[in-house]
Design a protein around this nucleic acid. Structure first.
Lengths: 214, 214
DNA sequence: TTTTTTGCACTGACCAGTCAGTTCAAAAAA
DNA sequence: TTTTTTGAACTGACTGGTCAGTGCAAAAAA
């Protein structure tokens, strides 16, 4: 993830932070930026170890292979994203918000995530549609988990009449995800001076149908 | 030292091409699918040559390096996309359509392009936000050319009152591009049985603000 | 004590790029 | 016409370098 502060996996592994976990975390952080910049194959294990401030042997003590390190990195990152989307949706629900407001909150949650972990997002987008890669099946499952959260909210919105019955749940979910992803990456890469609120309002307008029409 | 005419080969299209151009075309086609599947670094020049049915030396006879082959491939592909978007916008203009209709036509043109060159699209998305790569500056220029076409139509739409003055041209353009890109790649990868019209209507609904609201 | 990390030498597979040599159709000469 | 020459295009074996992964003894941390 980002070099700012360590990210802990909460959930499956409820034990306190062991030394091993700290080392793994350093390796994730080193790997994610390098792979985002250069791609998986162009990133060497020696580089990852060096940036993490760790010996090469340590990489292989903690992970079976370079590929496994990367797969666990993907799991780790997508897990955080899914959790973040889900809690945004739930919090809106608790405040009795509409489903459109929930979608809006999820857009913001997505932007916050991308702002915090830009390298991970880059890497995710770069790998998502690749075929015939070792981690393809892992990614497929992870993608589904994340998109399913959006689809669920859309479904509820149609059910309670907030959203048009004409919409195609799956395609609309994909389009919304794409909108957020690409707008956010463009923001990071090409207009970093903009605030998250600028980006959020632009996307909110599109979601609420206030760009064209009426 | 008499300059001899290059050998001419008549291609499927009515234009004549040199033998060299035909070879380059074969190399582009071989490279684009391999790189889309595995990424630039994981794709070997031997593989590209083999798939193109050409010796490795021929790759280096036609291109200075593996990187140059890739850069020219990017130029080639983005050129096709930009041209396609521009002509969709112009055709709508000739038929006196509204700017929203022009945007709609561009969405369809984008989908047709992605349907025709899915591998190129994958590769473009995977490389677009990478930093510190040799072809980064090339890609930046190419991206700008493509997005500028969308921005121009949005600007016209705001000017003539069709589109809300609240919108942020740049961010909205990025969001629209992302919407099309991601929905189309998802369609290709995960729901290939859907028709282009399905995808187009889903995106059209979002553009026209008929998903949520009223 | 046990677990984890270090440092470093080593291997074998893999790969970008090179280069001396080959092919062959068109041009020039006979 | 037939023969010879030319040179762009192509070939594929080869080279020098890189890198994932291994092995292990010793040190540090827990």
């Amino acid at each position: 993830m980002s070099a700012r502060e360590p990210v802990r996996i909460v959930g499956m592994d409820s034990s306190s932070t062991t030394r091993r976990q700290a080392t793994r975390q350093k390796l994730y952080e080193a790997a994610v930026t390098l792979i985002a910049e250069k791609g998986f194959s162009a990133t060497t294990v020696d580089e990852i170890a060096e940036r993490a401030g760790v010996a090469k042997g340590t990489v292989y003590y903690n992970f079976k292979s370079k590929t496994e390190l990367f797969e666990e990195l993907l799991r780790h990152g997508v897990g955080l994203l899914t959790e973040s989307l889900r809690s945004a949706a739930e919090e809106t629900e608790e405040r009795d918000g509409t489903r459109v407001e929930a979608l809006d909150a999820m857009i913001r949650a997505g932007l916050v995530f991308i702002d915090r972990y830009p390298a991970f997002t880059q890497l995710y987008v770069a790998e998502l549609w690749r075929t015939n890669r070792a981690w393809q099946s892992t990614l497929l499952v992870l993608r589904q988990e994340a998109v399913a959260v959006v689809e669920e909210v859309l479904r509820e919105g149609v059910a309670n009449g907030e959203l048009s019955e004409e919409i195609d749940i799956q395609l609309t979910a994909a389009a919304l995800v794409g909108m957020v992803l690409v707008a956010a990456l463009d923001w990071q890469a090409f207009q970093p001076q903009r605030t998250i609120d600028d980006v959020h309002s632009a996307l909110s307008l599109l979601l609420r149908g206030r760009v064209s029409g009426r």
